[in-house]
């Protein structure tokens, strides 16, 4: 494949997702991911913690033992779960539930 095709392919792939456009239009405060902050409020959805505990057990243990929620602070879990979202190709809905469970369970 000629080299000029690759940038076009890459650009097209990125544009097809519409993600950067969404971020540019909404600004950092209103990115789809930023909206997830409200979605991780168990006060609005008490069952989220239950779903999160289930997803945590099913998802994380596919590759490694389960860390205790108390090992990390809320901030650290936020970063760690994002890292695992990318590494493990986790669905965002599962990520939000797992994060809510871990932050509600770490006693910090």
């Amino acid at each position: 494949m000629k080299s000029c095709i690759f940038p076009a392919f890459t650009l097209a792939t990125i544009l097809l997702t519409g993600g950067p456009a969404a971020i540019a239009q909404s600004g950092p405060e209103e990115t789809p991911a930023a909206e997830s902050a409200a979605d991780t409020d168990p006060m609005q959805d008490p069952m989220q913690i239950v779903r999160g505990a289930k997803a945590w057990n099913e998802t994380c243990s596919r590759c490694h033992n389960l860390r205790s929620p108390s090992e990390l602070t809320d901030e650290e879990w936020d970063v760690s779960v994002t890292h695992m979202r990318v590494r493990g190709n986790l669905p965002a809905s599962d990520v939000r539930d797992i994060l809510a469970f871990l932050q509600a369970s770490n006693n910090q």
Partner: peptide, 9 residues
């Protein structure tokens, strides 16, 4: 870069 619920660049 998290693009949306289903895509990360």
């Amino acid at each position: 870069l998290v693009l949306n619920d289903h895509a990360v660049l």
